[in-house]
Simulated assay, not measured.
Amino acid sequence: MRRFNYVPSAFEDGHSLHRNAENIIEDPFEKKSEESYFVQFADLNAYAAFRRVFPGKSFGTDIWDELGDAVVADVNRLSGGPPGIVVWPSQ
């Protein structure tokens, strides 16, 4: 079903309609990070946001800043802090 979606016909027994899903970016099944570049990218962004607030020795705070225009700075316009990151509970 992930690749081929043959829909049974409502009018003829034994017939099916072939309808490709053309606008799906990623199939909607749970995956491990190593199975999907989209999940890996989401994991990297979440970790970069975490390290922007809580710096570590081996992962700098500059990775979050490399996202540039992809960061929606308005999300913490009222609470302050690093652009695009809401820290909860507040420090």
Rank of each mutant, 00 (worst) to 15 (best):
A42P: 04
Q40A: 08
S36H: 02
N45Q: 14
F38G: 12
W88I: 15
S79Q: 08
Q40V: 03
F38N: 09
F54N: 03
G81M: 04
V75T: 12
Y47N: 05
Y37M: 07
H18P: 10
A70T: 12
S33K: 07
P82N: 09
P89F: 12
P82H: 10
V75G: 11
S58I: 03
P28E: 11
L17Y: 14
A48P: 02
R19Y: 09
R52Y: 02
F41E: 06
H18D: 14
K32S: 13
R51F: 00
L44R: 05
S33G: 06
S16V: 12
G81V: 02
P83G: 07
A49R: 03
K57F: 00
P82V: 07
R19M: 09
W64N: 03
H15K: 15
I85F: 00
A49V: 00
E12C: 11
H15P: 08
E30T: 11
P89D: 09
V86M: 05
Y6L: 15
F41K: 06
P28Y: 10
G81Q: 04
G68N: 09
P55L: 02
G84I: 02
A46Q: 08
A42C: 09
E22C: 11
V39A: 11
A73N: 09
V7Q: 13
V87W: 07
M1R: 04
R19E: 10
G56S: 08
R77F: 14
G68I: 05
R51C: 00
I25A: 07
R51P: 01
P55Y: 00
H18S: 13
T61Y: 00
S58N: 04
A48H: 01
D43F: 02
A73V: 13
R52C: 00
I25C: 05
V87R: 08
S79H: 06
E12P: 06
V71I: 08
Q40P: 04
S58D: 01
D74L: 05
E66C: 08
A46K: 06
L17E: 13
A21C: 15
H15G: 07
V86Y: 01
N20Q: 10
V7W: 15
H18T: 13
V86E: 03
D13G: 13
E34D: 04
P82E: 10
D65K: 03
Q40D: 05
D13T: 15
P55V: 02
K32T: 15
P89N: 09
V53P: 00
R3G: 15
F11Q: 11
F50A: 00
P8G: 03
A70Y: 13
R51E: 00
F4T: 15
Y47M: 08
K31V: 04
A46P: 07
A70V: 10
S79M: 08
D43Q: 03
E35K: 04
W88E: 12
S33L: 07
A42Y: 06
D65Y: 00
Y47D: 04
E34H: 06
A70H: 12
S90V: 14
V53C: 00
F29C: 09
F29E: 10
D62I: 00
R19P: 05
V87T: 08
D69H: 06
Q40I: 03
V72S: 15
A10Y: 09
H15S: 13
